[in-house]
């Protein structure tokens, strides 16, 4: 495959496993990990174009992972996933933090793909 590579980070293993299968059916190469440390370890070995990270995870939370990613991989596009009913309240400064978009659970596969494409098309 020569399309974008996407990394999904969420401690809900069955969610990210299923999303990976569905993205790959649609020609998007994806990997999944269930915590922030595993994500950083994987990213040190493999390149990714887009990272979608859950906001609340045991250990390193989504915002902490994003902060590290911004420093180490400034070109990687970032999406934030949350189950919070009012994400604007919870992550007020997400755009400042370099997050392209916030996805609110539950979201459709089409929404995820549109966000991935939107992030890849964005200049910043």
């Amino acid at each position: 495959m020569s399309g974008p590579r996407v990394l999904l980070i969420d401690d809900e293993e069955e969610l990210v496993t299923t999303l990976v299968e569905r993205l790959e059916i649609r020609g998007i190469e994806a990997e999944a990990v269930t915590d922030g440390h595993a994500a950083l370890e994987l990213m040190s070995r493999e390149p990714f174009d887009v990272v979608a990270a859950d906001l609340k995870m045991p250990g390193l939370g989504g915002l902490e992972v994003i902060e590290i990613l911004r420093e180490r991989y400034p070109d990687v596009k970032i999406l934030l996933i949350t189950g919070h009913g009012r994400p604007d309240e919870e992550v007020k400064d997400y755009k400042v933090a370099g997050v392209h978009e916030v996805l609110v659970k539950p979201f459709s596969i089409d929404t995820l793909i549109a966000s991935i494409r939107g992030a890849l098309a964005a200049n910043t």
């Binding site: 809900e12 069955e14 969610l15 299923t18 999303l19 299968e21 569905r22 059916i25 609340k56 189950g83 919070h84 009913g85 659970k105 539950p106 979201f107 459709s108 596969i109």
Partner: peptide
Amino acid sequence: TASVTHELNNVLSIVEQAAGLLEDQLAA
């Protein structure tokens, strides 16, 4: 209730994606 509904969102997300995966397989 915020904490519990947050967790229910995770459940619904997995059900939605799993049902979608079945649909993908039927479409294939």
